[in-house]
């Protein structure tokens, strides 16, 4: 019993410590992004673009596939459930709102946590073990400015962009099924959908995307920089980073959705 309490206490302290470190990392990243040039430590545009390519453009094929699958799946379930009440003609309402407010940011967030978050955690942890982070310090390069800030910026830009892309692809896939099932034209589906959506719905989804991007980048950086041991440690923090990021995304999604809707 005592051992259990001790272990719980240790974990609590460590979680609190990591939360504090995450806040510091976020603050430092924002600082270098905004004031780095004044301190002769600018966040390099080329680094941000390179990260954007990796985080966003290279993820486009898999994001497209997932968005189409989600859109199609939402259409199948909406047509089925609304069909029980003979209300299939309102399928576009549920599909559009669910996709844009919920599923696009969520699925792109999870994709990015698994793909880019893990890559960032692995990169930082490997660099830490190989003393590359120490080398950055001794060269006079702030590692947060050099490693974390470009990744954070790239994710904050590319996750909402990918979420918008997922909206288009998801709605397109859903439209194909709905229009053929209800025997309406694609143009009619699009018109109905646009009538249902408001700018607030789109901003809701984009706001979530930005929040998810910050969570993924910071969680990956915190885990990556706290590596211990060799390659085993890299694997452990990478897995931990993905699990933490996905958990944080889902919890944050719930809180954000509740606060923004009620």
């Amino acid at each position: 019993m005592l051992a259990f309490l001790e272990q719980t206490g240790r974990r609590g302290v460590r979680a609190f410590d990591e939360l504090g470190y995450a806040t510091v990392l976020l603050g430092e990243s924002l600082f270098w992004t905004l004031f780095g040039r004044r301190w002769r430590q600018p966040v390099r545009f080329a680094s941000v673009v390179a990260q954007m390519m990796h985080v966003g453009i290279e993820a486009l094929p898999i994001a497209t596939l997932l968005a189409a699958a989600i859109g199609f799946m939402l259409a199948v379930q909406s047509l089925y459930s609304l069909g029980l009440f003979g209300a299939e003609s309102f399928a576009h309402v549920g599909i559009a709102l669910a996709l844009i407010r919920e599923f696009s940011p969520l699925i792109i967030g999870i994709l990015m946590a698994g793909r880019s978050g893990s890559a960032l955690a692995a990169r930082i942890s490997t660099m830490t073990i190989n003393q590359e982070v120490d080398a950055l310090h001794t060269i006079g390069i702030n590692p947060v400015r050099f490693l974390v800030a470009p990744a954070l910026l790239a994710m904050v830009i590319m996750l909402p962009a990918l979420a918008m892309w997922a909206n288009l692809i998801g709605l397109g896939a859903a439209g194909l099924l709905v229009s053929s099932s209800l025997d309406i034209t694609m143009a009619a589906f699009v018109t109905n959908t646009i009538e249902v959506l408001s700018p607030g719905d789109i901003l809701h989804g984009l706001g979530k995307s930005v929040l998810f991007a910050v969570l993924i980048a910071i969680i990956a950086s915190v885990n990556g920089s706290r590596v211990r041991g060799g390659s085993d440690g890299v694997g452990r923090v990478t897995t931990r980073s993905v699990v933490h990021a996905i958990s944080a995304i889902i919890v944050a999604d719930m809180i954000f959705g509740f606060l923004a809707t009620t």
Binding site: W39, A135, H137, T138, G140
Partner: peptide, 22 residues
């Protein structure tokens, strides 16, 4: 921090494993 940055430019360090950016 800024003075330390200037100071680091006047110093070189060769680490045990090289620590080159892979």
């Amino acid at each position: 921090p800024v003075e330390m940055l200037d100071q680091r430019r006047r110093i070189g360090v060769a680490f045990q494993g090289g620590a080159l950016f892979s």
